[in-house]
Amino acid sequence: MLPLEKPQQVHRALAWQGEIPTYNIYTFGIAGERFFRELKEHGRFLGTRCPACHLLYVPPRIYCERCFASLEEWVEVPGRGTVFTFTLAYYDLDGRRLEHPDILALVRLEGAHGGVLHRLGEVEPGQVAIGMPVEAVLKPPQERRGSILDILYFRPTRR
C-alpha cells in the first residue's frame, strides 16, 4: 500500500471512535445578565453608552473596546431597527434541504452601534430588502427564558 493511499472503505481501517467529552454552560456576564433579565422580565432592550466615543452598544457591554472606558450609562432602546443585510438559507446546520428558507438578517437597532443577528418572520422571502424597517416579536412573557431566542423573530414594522 502506498503511504498516502486513502482507505477505499473506511470501515476496513482500524480506528477508535472517540469524542471530546465536554459541554459548556455560558454565563451571560455582567452586561449580558442585565440585558437578558430586562428582556425576559420587561420585554425591553437595554444598551450602554460610551460618552467618549459616542457609541451606544446594544447588546450592552461593560467597557468600550475602543477607548477602554468602563461603561455605566444604561439606556433603553426600542426593539426596532432596519435590515442591514440578509440571506435566505436553504440548508440547516445538519445539511438538510429546507422547503421554506430561513430568512436570516443583521438588524441594526435604532441609534445603536452593532446590532443583532436574527430571523425575519411574517414576511415572504421575495419581499425582504436591505434598509427595510423591522421590529422584534417576543415570546409571551411566561415562555421567556432569558435568551436571544426570547425574540421569536423580527418582522416588518407595522405603522
Binding site: Y26, T27, G29, I30, G32, E33, I62, Y63, F68, S70
Partner: peptide, 13 residues
Amino acid sequence: LETPKELAFYATR
C-alpha cells in the same frame, strides 16, 4: 459570573 472578555477587561484595565 463575568464572561471571559469581562475578566480579561478587569485585569487589562
